[in-house]
């Protein structure tokens, strides 16, 4: 927020400093929402650590496991190849991140910094793709992937999202914000396009690039509808599809399902917790407009 330490006039300080009662009320509300929002995840984590003798169904369940065990994480792998699924999800996310970082950087730079015929048409077409909901094209997307011979493959899952038009537009915006004077100086020194992109462009768009990496990872890791349509072979499932498969087949043991959901959930939380400062920095500057 911009209620920063900078403005230290007495009046703004008194306006800023809430009364102890207000602060207490705020924390109370914050904790209440925290319980509501994070509680279900913690409860699931706890269930995944409970042994077979512990009751997970009772109306007043013990929140903490009496005999914490990682057995469920080992056993879920006997039921479905959960680590293969995790690896599959990782492969899909890896392809998507690579494609978006390279492809969107190059295209974003060209659109923002190089003048060429047709640049406005390309920009217009990119914008037009944004009104198209992804769900409305999954069918024809599937037909395309199938005709490329990639139905029921992880490449087929990863390929359509490996270069997102939204990310091209975001990189274009990021490059456009780099002051042209920087490049002009390099141009005088005889730098070519590759050198200017590498030495002047890239260092100035690292923030946007990291946001794209985080959200491409989250998007690919969490995706459900598209891999569900492309994949048939249970060995090739990604984690989300595999979890739904587990739920449908062996709904009897909630401890195993809990362990499975945690395998899908924890990497995302770690990635987001580590990277959240990039994200919220943009928010505080009023940069996220939806």
């Amino acid at each position: 927020m911009r209620r920063s330490r900078g403005s230290n006039t007495p009046r703004s300080r008194s306006f800023n400093t809430p009364s102890p009662a207000e602060t207490a009320l705020r924390y109370l509300l914050l904790l209440f929402v925290l319980l509501l929002v994070v509680g279900p995840f913690l409860w699931q984590l706890s269930t995944s650590l409970k042994g077979p003798t512990e009751d997970v169904w009772s109306a007043t369940p013990h929140f903490l496991p009496d005999h914490p065990t990682v057995d469920n994480y080992l056993k879920v792998a006997d039921t479905i190849p959960v680590w293969t699924y995790a690896a599959n999800s990782l492969v899909v996310a890896g392809i998507a991140i690579f494609g978006n970082v390279v492809g969107c950087t190059l295209a974003g730079y060209a659109l923002a910094k190089l003048r060429f015929r047709g640049v406005r048409l390309v920009f217009g077409l990119l914008l037009a793709t944004l009104v198209l909901p992804g769900e409305a094209t999954v069918v024809s997307q599937y037909v395309t992937v199938r005709s490329l011979g990639l139905a029921d493959t992880l490449t087929g899952v990863a390929l359509p999202g490996a270069l997102s038009m939204l990310n091209v537009l975001l990189m274009r915006t990021a490059f456009a914000a780099v002051p042209p004077e920087l490049e002009q100086a390099a141009l005088v020194d005889g730098a070519n396009v590759r050198q200017r992109l590498w030495h002047i462009g890239l260092p100035n768009v690292r923030g946007m690039l990291s946001v794209i990496v985080i959200f491409t990872f989250i998007g690919a890791w969490d995706d459900f509808l598209w891999p569900l349509i492309v994949l048939n072979d249970p060995q090739k499932y990604t984690l989300t599809v595999g979890l739904q498969y587990l739920n449908g087949t062996f709904s009897a043991n909630p401890r195993l399902i809990a362990a499975g959901t945690m395998i899908a959930f924890l990497p995302i939380v770690v990635v987001f917790a580590v990277c959240q400062r990039f994200f919220f920095k943009g928010v505080e500057e009023g940069a996220v407009k939806g």
């Binding site: 989250i218 969490d222 989300t240 979890l243 959930f265 995302i268």
Partner: peptide, 10 residues
């Protein structure tokens, strides 16, 4: 950031 599948299973 959690997958809708994870959330719906919980």
């Amino acid at each position: 950031v959690a997958s809708a599948v994870v959330v719906a299973l919980i």
